[in-house]
Design a protein around this nucleic acid. Sequence first.
DNA 1: AGGCGTTTCCGCCAAC
DNA 2: CAGTTGGCGGAAACGC
Length: 296
Amino acid sequence: MRVRLRRSSRQLFPEEDFALRVMRIRSHSPASLHEHDFHELVVVLGGAARHVTSEGHYPISAGDVFLIRGDMAHGYEETNRLMIVNILFDPAGLGLPTDDLRRLPGYHVLFRLEPLLRRQHGFRSRLRLATDQLAEAAGLITRLENELVGRPPGYRFMARAHLMHLIGFLSRSYADAPAEAAERRSLLALAGVLSFIERHYAEEITVDRLAGMAAMSESSLMRSFRKVTGRSPIDYVIALRVAKAAELLRRTDLAVTEIAFRCGFNDSNYFSRQFRKTMGRSPREYRKQQAAGGPA
DNA sequence: AGGCGTTTCCGCCAAC
DNA sequence: CAGTTGGCGGAAACGC
């Protein structure tokens, strides 16, 4: 897995320590299936085509925006004046600060929920930009592209910033669009839950409240939550709390008890036990090893 | 969507 | 003294 990623990195990205690239495709002829290991953000600037993936094929046209998850093969058929731009990037490799982003519902839809449920939703839940939104996105992409092509001093900094701007803009656009279709509403409901957790992890969170804000029964919320996150709601919250606590242990010298309270644990004893369960060692031990440059 | 038996959570005290 | 671990019981979360 790791080896595949590195080899692919060299093939896809000109600079192996900077995993960001923009590719424009102006194709009148069908492209063959290709695959890779990175996130590919696709923006359809003009024209139309049929998007073919291993999970099915969907008609696409100007204004469509969607994410191809790294290892998925895909291509385009029956292209008609198709103009698309692919933004390939490795989110982890670029070190983007996603904490704030994850507070946006639209981010969860665009990067997690819609790609995951695309098959069931028949691509009807994708982001569709209005004309003026598409123009703004195109402008951001052009600026990003100019930095990557010209490589003026500071271009990495600027390219990262433009990419962040684009991702933030697209995330907001999804949440702003009217959601008349049932599929979109259910995605936004789940995204609302995920973003709520990101914003309120330090407070008391109950499944009852989450279900209420999603307008779902507790059982159906738990079922769809597990489907998209792989874990139960409370498991997810605890994992987030522990992750936030681990960060505070690394980056500050706050007392363990204080960190427990700041991360939503009202009992430092209970925090200690939960921390060990997921991190394999006690909070204090973890901090000590981190300070010594030990294992992550 | 709701019911029900089982598991887990969570806040408390106590002991290192 | 701060932190960790164990035990307990009511509440909730969970999975069928």
